[in-house]
Design a protein around this nucleic acid. Structure first.
Length: 824
RNA sequence: GCGAGAGUGGCGGAACUGGCAGACGCGCGGGACUUAGGAUCCCGUGGGGAAACUCGUGGGGGUUCGACUCCCCCCUCUCGCACCA
C-alpha cells in the first residue's frame, strides 16, 4: 500500500490525544477566541455520511481557526431525551437510559472515526440529572417571571405518540415525528410565553447578518407580524362581545356578518347552554373531524352554518348574523372574523354560496374595483361608509379605528401568528416539570434546593400511552413545599426542545454544580461564532434558543441578546435522489468506506461533493477520486522528504529561482494558496479541495516537464500543501508534516499566506477578443502601457486577419485581463 | 395562492464585484507498463465540421465593446408557509 492511511490515522490520533491538542484548559485566558459548534445530535444509533457532512464541515472550520491562532472551543454533546428511546423501551423491553447510553457510545465511536477535533472533556448529555437539573431550574426562572404558565385550550394531540405537540411540531397537519394525523383536544398544558418576545425575536433578526437569508425569512414568517385593529361586536343579552382582528378596519362598514371557528369559545358556550341547534352541533363536530382528515386539501369548499345569533355593528348599530365557518382558524387572531365579502375573496365566496349580502365600501381610482364577480382586495377611497366616505384606505383605517376607540369598541393592534410554546409532554423520557399539585395551595414550584426532580428508574412501560411516571407511587407522592400536606408531583415532562435551547451555554463549564453556566465565561465566549446544523431546525430549535437567551438576558444572567452569531445550514446528502433513510434502504454508512479508504478520503470527498450549503448526491465512485488524490499527495511528500531530507523542517525560504519552471511553479502555488485561503474563509470547501488538487498537479506537471525536484520551490509547495490540507485531511497532513521534519503538530503550524513577491510576474498574458469573441492571446510585459498593449493586440496575426477590410472603431483594454478590438 | 432559491457537458460541479464558459473530480475513449488489470502513469474528452470556422449556460426579448452574471416576459424544478382575516 503506497498510502498508509491506517498507520497515519493511528499515529495522528495518538498524538492529538497525548498532546491534548483539542482541550480548552482555561476559558478565561485566551485573547483570540472562536466558539465553533455543531448542533448536538439525538443519539438515534447509527450515523450516515449525510450526518458526517455536518461534523466534517465544523471540524474543518475549527481546525482552520486553530491554525489561524485562535483558542477554539469545539465541544460535543447529546440531545439525549426523546421519544425513540421510550418507544424502544416499549418494543424491546430495554430501559431508555440503557438504550440511550448504548447509542451514545456507538455514535461517539463514529464521530471519532471521522477524526473530529472535539474537546471530549466537555461532553454533556441532556438526560444526565446534572444537566436536566438546570433545565428544571430554567423552567422555575421562567415560572417566576410569569413566562411559564398552565392553561387549558385546544391542543395538537398525536394519537400515535400519545402526547401533545407544539404548533411548530405539526407539519401538514401531521406529527413531525411519526406522520400520524394530529387531533385537536381540549387539555390543560404547560406553556412558555414566547409570544411576549415576539417583537424582539422579529426585530433582532435584522442583526443576524451572518445567518442565511432563508432562515431569517422563515422565522419572520413564522412570527407573522401584522398590523390592524381589534373590534368588538356586542352580543345583545350577553355581557361579552365577540372580538375580531382585522388588518382592514377601513372596510368595517362593508362587514355583513361574523364568521367563527368551530372551536371558538362563543360556539362552545352556545352549545353548553343548549342554544345551538342540532344541525349546528353536528356541523361543528364534522368540522373538527374534517380538519384532521383534509389536512392536505389546498382549497376546500367554503362551508358554514348560521348560529341564529346576531351581534350589533359597533358603528351602525345594525344586526349582523353570526356564522360558524370552516375557513376561520382558531389558531390565528381571535378565531373570529368580520366578513367583508366585497373586499375579501374568501368572504365573497362564502357570502355568494350562502346568500349573504355584499356591500362595496372601497373604490379604487382609475381602475376597475368591485365588479360583483370577485372581491376587490386592493385599496382605494371609502364609499357607502357614511361619514367616512371619500377617505383613502390609509386614512380610513385611522379614522375608523379612532371612532371605535372613542366608543370603547376597538383599538389598533399588532397581531402575531406566533403562538405560545406548549412544552409539556405526557411521556417519561424527558426532564420532569418541577411542579407540585397541592389540594390546598394549588400548583406550587419545587424549591430550587430540591432540584433535580429525578426521573425514577422503576417505572412500567406500557403501550397505552399513559405516562409511565403515573405508575411510580414513590415519585408521585410528595409533601407540599408550602403547607407540608400530602401532595402530588406533576407527571408531565418537558419538550426536548427545552433541553436543547440552552446547552450551548453549559459547555463552558459542563460540570458546574452551583449554576447552569458560568456567566463570566459565557459572556466571554458567546455568542457562538459559528453554528452549524441542518436547515430543518430553522424554526424550532433556533427560535426557541433565541427566546431562552433573551429571557436569560432579561434575568441578568447573560449579556448578549442572541446565541448564534453566524449560522451555517449545510445541505443534505442524497442517495438515488432521495434523503437517506432506513426505510428507503439508501443509507450510506461511513464505517466500511473509512475501513477501505481511510477517514481522510471520506472527509475530502464529503467536502468536495459540492457547495456545502446545497444538497448533493453521493457517488461511491467519487470517493475513489479523493483516494487517488491523497495517494498522489502522499507520494509527493515522501519523495520530497526523501530527496530533501537535509532541510529538516526548515521554513521554506529559498533561494528562489528568478525565472524558469521553478519560478512559475512558485507563482502557481502562491496563487492557489491565495484562492484556497479565500475559499476556506467563505466556506467554499469544495473549491478549496479542488485548489489543493491543483497544487499537487502543478508539482507533477513540473516534474514531468523535467523540473528539478531538489528545488526550494518544490519543498515550499509540499510545505504549503500540507498546511492547507491540515483542516481538511488532518491525519494525512499530520503524518506529512512530520515527514517534512517538523517536531510540532500541524495543528500548531501557522496557516500559510501567499506572498506578494511570489505572485509577481514580469509578463502578463492577455486574452484578445475581436467584437467580443475570443480570437487570440498575447503576452506583454507586466508594465506595458495601454498603447503598447493596443499595438501588440493589433499586430497579432490572427487579430490582423479578423480585422482585415474593417475599420477598428475602438480598442477596450481591461488591465490584466483582456483586450477587445471593436471593428466594423 | 404567497414567499425564497435553483436551472451550465454523460454526471457532481467551477467561473470573486459583467471580461478566456466548462476549473477540479467522476465517467468515457486511446495509449504505456504488464501473464493479467477493476492498480498505476501519459494523452484526449461540450455539440457540429476535414479544416477555416460555427453553435452553445431552461426559452424569448433587451442593455453593453462584451452577459452564466444586469433588466423585462415566459417555462420547469426544489424548499418554506399555506383559507393568517
Amino acid at each position: 500500500m503506497d498510502y498508509p492511511f491506517r498507520d497515519l490515522e493511528a499515529r495522528a490520533r495518538k498524538r492529538w490525544d497525548e498532546e491534548r491538542l483539542f482541550e480548552l484548559r482555561d476559558p478565561m485566558a485566551p485573547a483570540r477566541r472562536f466558539y465553533c459548534l455543531n448542533m448536538f445530535p439525538y443519539p438515534s444509533g447509527d450515523l450516515h455520511v449525510g450526518h458526517g457532512r455536518n461534523y466534517i464541515l465544523g471540524d474543518a472550520i475549527a481546525r482552520l481557526k486553530m491554525m489561524q491562532g485562535y483558542a477554539v472551543l469545539a465541544p460535543m454533546g447529546w440531545d439525549a431525551f426523546g421519544l425513540p428511546a421510550e418507544n424502544a423501551a416499549i418494543a424491546n423491553r430495554i430501559h431508555p437510559s440503557v438504550w440511550t447510553k448504548r447509542n451514545v457510545a456507538r455514535m461517539k465511536d463514529q464521530l471519532q472515526a471521522w477524526g473530529a477535533a472535539f474537546d471530549w472533556n466537555r461532553e454533556l448529555s441532556s438526560c444526565d440529572p446534572e444537566y436536566y437539573r438546570w433545565t428544571q431550574w430554567i423552567f422555575l426562572k421562567l415560572h417566576e417571571r410569569g413566562l411559564a404558565y398552565r392553561a387549558k385550550g385546544a391542543v395538537n394531540w398525536c394519537p400515535s405518540c400519545q402526547t401533545v405537540l407544539a404548533n411548530e411540531q405539526v407539519v401538514d397537519g401531521a406529527c413531525e415525528r411519526c406522520g400520524t394525523p394530529v387531533e385537536s383536544r381540549d387539555l390543560e398544558q404547560w406553556y412558555f410565553k414566547i409570544t411576549a418576545y415576539a417583537e424582539p425575536l422579529l426585530r433582532d433578526l435584522d442583526h443576524l447578518q451572518h445567518w442565511p437569508e432563508k432562515v431569517r425569512l422563515m422565522q419572520a414568517n413564522w412570527i407573522g407580524r401584522s398590523e390592524g385593529a381589534t373590534i368588538r361586536f356586542p352580543v345583545p343579552g350577553d355581557a361579552d362581545p365577540i372580538e375580531v382582528f382585522t388588518t382592514r378596519p377601513d372596510t368595517l362598514l362593508g362587514a355583513t356578518f361574523l364568521a367563527l371557528a368551530a372551536e371558538h369559545p362563543f360556539v362552545t358556550g352556545l352549545r353548553e347552554r343548549g342554544a345551538l341547534s342540532a344541525g349546528a352541533e353536528a356541523f361543528v363536530d364534522r368540522l373538527k373531524r374534517a380538519r384532521v382528515e383534509n389536512r392536505f386539501a389546498v382549497e376546500t369548499e367554503k362551508e358554514g352554518f348560521d348560529t341564529g345569533v346576531t351581534v350589533t355593528h359597533p358603528l351602525t348599530g345594525k344586526p349582523l348574523p353570526v356564522w360558524i365557518a370552516n375557513y376561520v382558524l382558531m389558531g390565528y387572531g381571535t378565531g373570529a372574523i368580520m366578513a367583508v365579502p366585497g373586499h375579501d375573496q374568501r368572504d365573497f365566496e362564502f357570502a355568494t354560496k350562502h346568500g349573504l349580502p355584499i356591500v362595496e365600501v372601497i373604490r379604487p381610482e382609475g381602475e376597475p374595483g368591485f365588479d360583483g364577480a370577485a372581491a376587490y382586495e386592493g385599496e382605494g377611497r371609502l364609499v357607502n361608509s357614511g361619514g367616512f366616505d371619500g377617505l383613502p384606505s390609509e386614512a380610513g383605517r385611522r379614522a375608523i379605528t379612532e371612532a371605535l376607540h372613542a366608543k370603547g369598541a376597538g383599538e389598533s393592534r399588532v397581531n402575531y401568528r406566533l403562538r405560545d410554546w406548549l412544552i409539556s409532554r405526557q411521556r417519561y423520557w424527558g426532564a420532569p416539570i418541577p411542579m407540585i399539585r397541592c389540594d390546598r395551595c394549588g400548583i406550587v414550584p419545587v424549591p430550587e434546593k430540591d432540584l433535580p426532580v429525578l426521573l425514577p428508574d422503576q417505572v412500567e412501560f406500557k403501550p397505552t400511552g399513559e405516562s409511565p411516571l403515573l405508575s411510580n407511587e414513590e415519585f408521585l407522592r410528595v409533601d407540599c413545599p408550602k403547607c407540608g400536606a400530602a401532595a402530588r408531583r406533576e407527571t408531565d415532562t418537558m419538550d426536548t426542545f427545552v433541553d436543547s435551547s440552552w446547552y450551548f451555554l453549559r459547555f463552558l463549564n459542563p460540570r458546574l454544580e452551583t449554576a447552569p453556566f458560568e456567566s463570566d465565561a459565557v459572556n466571554r465566549w458567546l455568542p457562538v461564532n459559528q453554528y452549524i446544523g441542518g436547515v430543518e431546525h430553522a424554526i424550532l430549535h433556533l427560535l426557541y434558543s433565541r427566546f431562552i437567551v433573551k429571557v436569560l438576558r432579561d434575568l441578568g444572567l447573560v449579556s448578549f441578546p442572541e446565541p448564534f452569531e453566524r449560522l451555517f445550514t449545510q445541505g443534505m446528502i442524497t442517495k438515488d435522489g432521495a434523503k437517506m433513510s432506513k426505510s428507503k434502504g439508501n443509507v450510506v454508512p461511513p464505517d466500511a468506506l473509512i475501513q477501505r479508504y481511510g477517514a481522510d478520503t471520506v472527509r475530502l470527498y464529503t467536502l468536495f461533493i459540492g457547495p456545502p450549503e446545497k444538497d448533493a448526491e453521493w457517488n461511491d465512485r467519487g470517493v475513489e477520486g479523493a483516494y487517488r488524490f491523497l495517494t498522489k499527495y502522499w507520494r509527493l511528500i515522501t519523495d520530497v522528504a526523501a530527496l530533501q531530507s537535509d532541510r529538516g523542517g526548515a521554513d521554506a525560504a529559498g533561494p528562489w529561482a528568478e525565472s524558469g519552471p521553478a519560478r512559475d511553479l512558485r507563482r502557481r502555488v502562491h496563487q492557489l494558496t491565495h484562492q484556497i485561503c479565500d475559499d476556506m474563509d467563505r466556506f467554499h470547501l469544495n473549491t478549496a479541495v479542488s485548489g489543493l488538487m491543483q497544487i499537487v498537479n502543478a508539482v507533477q506537471d513540473y516534474q514531468a516537464a523535467g523540473g528539478d525536484m531538489n528545488a526550494a520551490e518544490v519543498w515550499e509547495a509540499a510545505d504549503y500543501a500540507t498546511r492547507l490540507l491540515g483542516p481538511l485531511a488532518p491525519h494525512t497532513a499530520e503524518g506529512a508534516w512530520a515527514r517534512l521534519g517538523h517536531a510540532e503538530s500541524v495543528v500548531k503550524a501557522p496557516w500559510p499566506a501567499p506572498s506578494a513577491e511570489a505572485l509577481e510576474s514580469p509578463t502578463k498574458k492577455l486574452v484578445v477578443q475581436v467584437n467580443g469573441k475570443l480570437r487570440s492571446e498575447i503576452t506583454v510585459p507586466a508594465d506595458a502601457d495601454q498603447d503598447a498593449i493596443r499595438k501588440a493586440a493589433l499586430s497579432d496575426e490572427r487579430v490582423a486577419r479578423m480585422v482585415e477590410g474593417k475599420t477598428v472603431a475602438k480598442v477596450i483594454i481591461v488591465p490584466g485581463r483582456l483586450v477587445n478590438v471593436v471593428a466594423r
